[in-house]
Amino acid sequence: MAQALLEVEGLTKRFGGVVALEDVTLRVHQGETVGLIGPNGAGKTTLFNCVTGLLRADRGAIRFGRRNPESLAGLAAHHIVQRGIARTFQNIRLFGSMSVLENVVLGTYQRTHTGLWGAALATREARQEQQWAAERAMELLELVRLQDRAEALGASLPFGLQRRLEIARALASDPVLLLLDEPAAGLNPVEKQALLALIQRIKAQGLTMVLIEHDMHVVMPISDRVVVLDYGKTIAEGSAEAIQRDARVIEAYLGVPQRGADAAR
């Protein structure tokens, strides 16, 4: 099998007595879209938090990279972004009192070189880079169909558009791997379809993705492979069809009546 782009091995994370992740192994290959599903509290978000450097795992390894995979252990969050991993959040974390455009421009930060002091002194290079960043941000706003709202404040957007803005902001760092944490949660069916189309467009550009999602109508059509977590453990892994037939999954997850998470938002 080809070398994986992201390799999570034996990852364990505890919060006091709660074992959020237990010996989790996950491989994501270049160009692949992996659906990550599992009931509430299964550890999905915790896995993203460990990969992106927000949390330190208690045990296990995380390696990332196309040619020479590099361990991400101990790297600060902003250094992990530089390696090419971007993410969105389950509970949207936009900069609400900044404009839509500014939100995306900030996402380009790690692709610029002048640094904070250069920016403060408004050197020629810094100004050119700002120009570039604004153009790049507008391209991404077009991709997520928000170009007409560029000057609006982040917080003023309706919920569904905020989710799109968060995706644009994550893409602005030009990632190799995009981690989407329940991007469809709280969207109505029409918005969900539009989001699905957006993710398809991103996928068509060749980006590798891991998608946490409860709604099977979203997960199934775009995932090349689905991984199921339950109580911090990987309980199944396979094609979307196989997963839907897997007895353990049905018991742990699909058998459970639709949870209130979506309705609650």
Binding site: G53, V81, R87, R93, M98, Y109, A120, Q130
Partner: peptide, 21 residues
Amino acid sequence: TTLGKAMRATSQDLVACALLG
């Protein structure tokens, strides 16, 4: 400036900021 934007963004959500690099 980018520095100013980063300052405003940090004051709103430090974690989201770090995750943008």
